[in-house]
């Protein structure tokens, strides 16, 4: 697993404790931005990069304030005072008492309730665009103290979910070769990355990432990520509060997620992948490999 900048990981680990306390104190206390927790893509979905928030349904749904808060910024139009473009032609930011920011981009500009300075939980902030608007609307939860995006699943009420995560296109990649694990079981010894598509099709979303993925080799845990947070430091993206992985090393070019590299020496071994969503639905897949 590739970690962040030297020394960064230690700081991150130390910072995890207050983050967890903050999260625990706010768990489930906020409302979903769209009724019934509907969204198109969830935290961690690959949308050209790691999505650090939710892409909202494109159906003109009212988008509501997740908690009491104060409007601190809004802009509509194609750009900010003639310079930096505004994604989806609108940006609205609320500051909540908890220290979190909720950030909304791409809501229909004319629908924004920017004339209010204070919002109560459930107040309508604006509307998501219709599908034919050719734009994307998104919402993000941002921890102002630690400067990181938080997975809304931690903060919002639990959603009913009885579907297990899906694991597809699992392969070992090394030395310019890719070995699909459902067919290639005899592999030359060497250093390999484990790549896969891991998605969770929860009822409220078209696609989301899992909550947790663990990689075990011969029963021993080699990698573990929890989709809790994403942040930037020094211009680079980092993922997962407890493991601090550089975003650039987590995604393969085709959008599959990547673990390792792991060194495989001659013999037999079992690779186990355990993927779990936030409702604790678990999928476990094991592959027995012969290394020569």
């Amino acid at each position: 697993m590739v970690s962040g900048r030297p020394g960064h990981k230690t700081l991150v680990t130390l910072a995890v404790i207050p983050v967890l306390l903050l999260i625990a104190s706010m768990a489930f206390s906020m409302d979903w931005p769209v009724e019934n927790g509907r969204y198109n893509y969830g935290f961690g979905a690959f949308r050209g990069r790691f999505l650090p928030g939710l892409e909202l349904p494109l159906d003109g749904s009212p988008v509501i304030a997740p908690d009491d808060g104060e409007l601190i910024f809004h802009v509509t139009g194609s750009d900010i005072l003639g310079s930096y473009p505004v994604s989806g032609d609108s940006l609205l930011v609320l500051q909540h008492n908890s220290g979190l920011l909720s950030i909304y981009s791409g809501l229909v500009p004319d629908s924004l309730t920017e004339y209010l300075k204070s919002f109560r939980k459930g107040d309508i902030l604006g509307k998501s665009p219709q599908k034919n608007a050719m734009t994307i609307a998104a919402s993000y939860m941002f921890d102002n103290k630690d400067r990181r995006f938080i997975n809304p699943l931690i903060l919002m009420p639990p959603l009913k979910d009885d579907k297990t995560p899906v694991l597809r296109n699992i392969a070992l990649v090394g030395e310019g070769q890719e070995y699909m694990l459902d067919s290639d079981r005899n592999i030359r010894q060497g250093s390999y990355k484990l790549v896969m598509e891991a998605t969770d099709l929860s009822p409220g979303a078209m696609q989301s990432a899992c909550w947790e993925i663990r990689i075990l080799i011969d029963g021993s845990e080699k990698s573990r990520v929890q989709y809790d947070a994403a942040w930037a430091s020094g211009g680079k993206g980092y993922l997962f509060g407890s493991s601090s992985i550089a975003e650039s090393s987590f995604f393969a070019q085709d959008g599959r997620i990547s673990f390792g590299p792991y060194n495989f020496s001659r013999g037999r071994l079992v690779v186990t992948i355990i993927a779990m969503d936030y409702a604790q639905n678990k999928r476990e897949q094991s592959y027995s490999l012969s290394i020569f």
């Binding site: 900010i80 310079s83 950030i103 102002n144 400067r147 990181r148 211009g235």
Partner: peptide, 24 residues
């Protein structure tokens, strides 16, 4: 390519420096 910690709310640039203000 540079990733800022949160959304950009203000921007300015000269030939050897780009500065972004963020919503946090």
């Amino acid at each position: 390519s540079y990733l800022f910690p949160s959304q950009i709310s203000a921007f300015g640039a000269v030939s050897d420096l780009a500065v972004a203000g963020t919503v946090d």
